[in-house]
Amino acid sequence: MTVSAVAQTEGQKIIIDVTSTDLKVYQSVMLSAKLISSGNPKTKLEVIVYGEALPMLMKDQSNVAGEIAKYMNNDNVVFTACELSMNLLQVDKNQLLSGVGTVENAVVEIVNKQALDWGYIKAGN
């Protein structure tokens, strides 16, 4: 079996790193999530949001909340906020969209996943 065939059969593991404050970047991330997950439903995708991009995952500020909600029943697509950033920006977990997970430190999470062969996409403009 070729590497390409294995990737299609088993799915890939991909991180999308989001730190931008640009609302258009959030829309682009959601388009990427749609294309990646529909291209191979077995692909595992984690959108990791930190720094001043946290509004992407916040109830009262997200311009993509409806699109994120569509993935809440998909175990292969996860949206994650950085607790370190949340603390620095005084954001409580109850301000996050329903179903959004958290990690203690986004950068450490990204590095650890890359060590486990997760692909990496930096969202931005």
Rank of each mutant, 00 (worst) to 15 (best):
I16Q: 01
Q8R: 11
G101I: 05
Y120Q: 06
I68V: 15
T80L: 08
K59L: 02
T102D: 01
A65K: 04
V108W: 05
T43V: 08
L31I: 10
G11P: 14
G66F: 07
C82R: 01
V47P: 10
S37R: 09
Y71E: 11
Q8Y: 09
S62Y: 06
V64E: 00
G66H: 04
V91C: 06
G51F: 09
S38E: 15
N74K: 03
N73Q: 05
Y71C: 05
E83P: 03
E52C: 11
G124S: 08
K24V: 06
N112P: 01
V3R: 09
L84N: 03
L96W: 01
I48E: 04
L116T: 08
I14K: 01
S62K: 07
K13G: 10
I48Q: 06
W118C: 12
N63G: 08
N112G: 13
Q114N: 12
L116C: 06
M30S: 12
S85Q: 04
M58G: 07
K70Q: 15
L116W: 04
I68M: 14
D75H: 08
Y71S: 11
T102Y: 09
L31P: 05
L54Q: 03
Q114K: 15
E104P: 01
Q61L: 14
V25K: 09
G11N: 02
K70P: 09
V103T: 02
V107T: 13
S32F: 11
A115D: 07
V100K: 00
S85P: 04
Y120D: 07
E83S: 04
L57D: 03
V77N: 08
V78P: 00
I16A: 02
A5F: 09
I14F: 02
K70R: 13
V107N: 11
D75C: 03
V64W: 00
T80A: 04
S4G: 06
K70L: 14
A7G: 10
T80M: 04
T9E: 15
Q12Y: 04
L45W: 11
S85D: 01
K24L: 14
N73F: 00
E67R: 11
M72W: 01
M72T: 13
S37M: 06
A81Q: 01
S32M: 15
V77L: 06
Y120H: 04
S28T: 05
W118G: 10
E104N: 03
Q95D: 15
V111W: 04
S32L: 13
K122N: 03
I16T: 00
V25H: 10
L23V: 10
S4A: 13
G39I: 08
V91I: 10
T80N: 03
K93G: 07
V47Q: 14
M1S: 05
K42S: 01
S85G: 07
V108C: 03
M56K: 03
S37F: 07
E67V: 12
K42Q: 03
P55N: 00
T2D: 07
F79I: 08
I14H: 04
Q90S: 09
G39K: 05
L96T: 01
V107L: 14
S62I: 12
M1P: 05
S98M: 07
K42A: 01
I36C: 05
I36W: 03
E46D: 13
I68W: 06
N105A: 10
Q95Y: 05
V107S: 11
L31D: 10
L35E: 07
V100A: 03
G66D: 08
V108T: 15
A106D: 01
I121K: 00
L84M: 12
F79M: 08
I14Q: 05
V64M: 04
A5H: 10
Y120E: 09
